[in-house]
Structures are given as structure tokens and as C-alpha cells.
Amino acid sequence: MKSIINEPVIVNDEKTTLVRNAIEHRATWFYLLLEEIRKRGMDMEDIGRSAIYECGCFHGMERILKNCENPEDLRSFLKVFADETGQKVFEMEIVENTKDKLYIDFHYCPLVSAWQKLGVEVEDIPLLCDIAMDGDRGICSKMDGYEFNLGKVIAQGDGICEIRIDRKAE
């Protein structure tokens, strides 16, 4: 049974706009940093993935798990992982949220928006997106017994990003 279902809310309030702008700024320096690494002949993807994953692990421990009432229950995890502001910023639709499943569809991505505004080649955006998703993979790696899966993604032109977190089969 699904415990929470909501439709995405398109919000244009000042706080949501400010947070979107901050995330776009982060996406801009993320892209420029990776481009500089690439220009210097280093492995941009490997370095980017490693750093972003480590950041996710840090946030998984410091922000999520320390503030989650019950880290063994994805209903509790949702409250910290996707708070009200985050839900507005990414126009999240909570598709399913039970103790063992958290399925969220994102209908907007400020990172993709920033990369498009920068004129990043369309074929490069999916890789940037996947590297950025290593942050969420890092967060989820700190949750024993759960696995993170990514379905459709806005960066590939799908119109939504499907985040799926499930309890691992025993």
C-alpha cells in the first residue's frame, strides 16, 4: 500500500526560485571544474564521480542519517531527503513511499537547466547528470539494506527523472 502520493506542484515562489538559482550556480561550477580537469588531460569522469560520490557519502552520514527519525524506514528518510523545499525545487512527485520503497519522479532539474543555459552539448548532459547522481548514490550507500536505482532521466530527454530506492532482497 502506498502511504504518500502527491502530484508535482509547479511553484514559482521566491524561496523556490532562490534555491533553484543556487543549484544552477552549483551546476555551473561543477561543469566548469570538470571541463578544466578534462582540458588538463586528466580523467574528468573518474575524478568527478569520486568527488561527488564522496560528497554524497558525507551528506548521507552528516545530514540525512543524523536527522532521520528512523533510518530503517524510507517514510522517515523521505522527510529529510526530500523536504518541502526540495520537493518544490525539483517538482517532485512522490509515486510510492513505504517502509521499504521510495519512488520519486522529478519533473524539473535545475542542473540540466543550468547546463542548457551554458550551451553544453546535448550529448554531454547525460554524463554530467549521471556524475551528479553519484551524490544520491553516495547518500543511499550509507543506508544499510537499501539500493538506489535510476530510471528515466530528464538529461536524456525523458521529461522526468525516476529515483527508485528499494530494500535489498535478502
Rank of each mutant, 00 (worst) to 15 (best):
E123D: 11
I125H: 03
C109I: 00
V89Y: 05
M133T: 10
W115G: 00
D43T: 00
R49C: 02
N97M: 13
Y53C: 00
Y103N: 08
C129T: 07
M42S: 03
K39L: 15
I94C: 06
E45H: 02
L127R: 11
M143N: 11
A114T: 01
K99P: 05
T85Q: 09
M42F: 04
D46I: 01
D83Y: 10
I94P: 03
I37H: 00
K66V: 04
N67K: 08
C140P: 02
K39A: 11
L102Q: 03
D144F: 07
M42E: 07
L128T: 02
A114I: 00
K39I: 09
Y108F: 15
R38H: 12
G60T: 07
M44F: 13
D130V: 06
E45L: 02
M143H: 13
G119M: 01
I47T: 01
R137S: 07
I47K: 00
F81L: 12
W29F: 15
G135S: 06
E62G: 07
K101D: 06
R40C: 04
E45Q: 06
C140S: 10
Y108A: 10
I125E: 01
V89P: 08
P110Y: 04
K39V: 07
E72T: 12
S141F: 06
K99I: 10
E93R: 09
E36G: 15
L111K: 08
E54H: 13
I94V: 11
Q87N: 15
G41I: 00
C129I: 02
K99E: 15
V80D: 03
R75I: 06
Q116M: 05
G86V: 07
D73W: 04
I125V: 03
A82L: 08
E91W: 13
W115Y: 03
C57T: 11
F58E: 11
F58T: 15
V80P: 05
G135R: 05
N97G: 05
K99R: 14
E72L: 10
D134T: 09
D100T: 01
F30D: 15
D43W: 02
D134F: 07
K79G: 10
Y53E: 09
F58A: 13
E93L: 09
E62Y: 13
I139C: 08
G135A: 10
T98S: 04
W29L: 14
C55P: 03
Q87T: 09
A114D: 04
E72V: 05
C57W: 09
F58G: 11
R75Q: 07
C109G: 04
E35S: 15
P110G: 02
N70E: 14
P126W: 07
Y53A: 02
I47P: 00
E69G: 10
C57H: 04
L32M: 12
F90G: 09
E54D: 14
I139G: 02
T85C: 11
E93P: 05
K79D: 12
R49P: 01
T98A: 03
H107T: 05
E96H: 04
V112D: 03
D43K: 01
L34M: 15
V120K: 03
S50I: 10
G86E: 12
M133V: 12
K88S: 11
G135W: 03
L127E: 14
E91H: 13
H59Q: 11
G60M: 11
E36P: 12
Y108M: 07
D130T: 13
K79T: 10
F30W: 12
G56W: 05
F58W: 15
E72P: 01
F106P: 01
